[in-house]
Computed example of a mutant assay.
Amino acid sequence: MLVDLDDIDEFLDGDPKSQAPRLIFSGGTPAWSSEEGDHWDDESTKSVNGVEARRFLTKLRYDAPRVEHGILSFHTLVEDGLRNFRSHETDDHVIRFDEDAWEERAEQSGFITDNLLSMDIQTGYLLDYLDARNAALVLAYFQSRSLRESTIEVDIDDDGWTELEVDGFPAKKLSRYVDGLDERYPHIELHCFYAILPSSANRSAEEEASQNRQIPFRTIRGDSYSPDDVENQRGFEDAGLKRPAHGAQSLEEAMSFYDWVFFE
């Protein structure tokens, strides 16, 4: 979910034990308008400590998860396959979703499960978007594990709820034994919040792109160029590096034609 930076400290002061399991944005309807397009959001919010959070990812049971429309329009992303998005300007694969794994899960179970499987977002693009929105991306994490009918003995602390931190963010852990029908089994839960803050200058997509445009490189002969020098092969042609019409007959000839390029 997305939380305004001005409210992030107060949000994280909330109790992850009671909040984490319910902070799931599910469902959603096509909230379409001619101005904004189809962004599949019912505009619902979640509240922690009186602070409202907006969805970043919608968990849909019968459809692949949908990301918040704002990041798609901010970076001019176009969908290339199910929930895979590329930059219209740079053709970078910005958001990656395993469409095959999603469909395979559907075939195995007869319906799409709640499981997200995985979705990857390039760090720089995400951080630039958060920076523009003056927001943090907060993950509400909930894990539950029980060990039943086990052939091995597992001992845990039977101390109920305890507070701890995960990478500096608040978390609570439940550790206890539960009386079942024929056994007493161990059960552990972990609830926590985790915040991804906006970009630092050296991780943003724009900064990385700017740096890449300036990376110098040299050839085995010692000639140095910048990317601008070799746009449309001008720099290579100035150095006499032209592709032979019918290919090189030897490694030495190939080197004389092609040279070798090394990035600093």
Rank of each mutant, 00 (worst) to 15 (best):
E68P: 00
P16Q: 05
T113F: 04
A132L: 04
I156G: 04
D167V: 06
A254V: 06
T76S: 13
L181A: 13
R221C: 07
G168S: 04
T45A: 10
S224T: 15
F111Y: 14
G28I: 02
Y258T: 10
E107M: 07
G110I: 02
G235Y: 05
T113P: 03
T58D: 08
L190R: 05
N84T: 00
E253N: 08
D4I: 03
R243N: 14
R221H: 14
F142S: 09
E163A: 12
L174I: 04
K172A: 09
R96N: 11
H246K: 15
S175G: 07
E163P: 03
Y129R: 01
F217A: 03
N49S: 15
T162W: 07
N115L: 10
V230E: 05
R213H: 11
R133Q: 10
R86A: 01
R96Y: 07
Y62N: 12
F262D: 13
S199G: 14
R61A: 09
D182K: 09
L147Q: 08
Q214C: 09
D98M: 01
R105C: 05
A135L: 03
D38L: 10
A64Q: 02
E43Q: 13
Y125N: 01
V261D: 08
H39S: 09
L190T: 07
A140M: 05
L130F: 00
D159P: 02
D100C: 03
R234L: 15
D42E: 13
A106R: 08
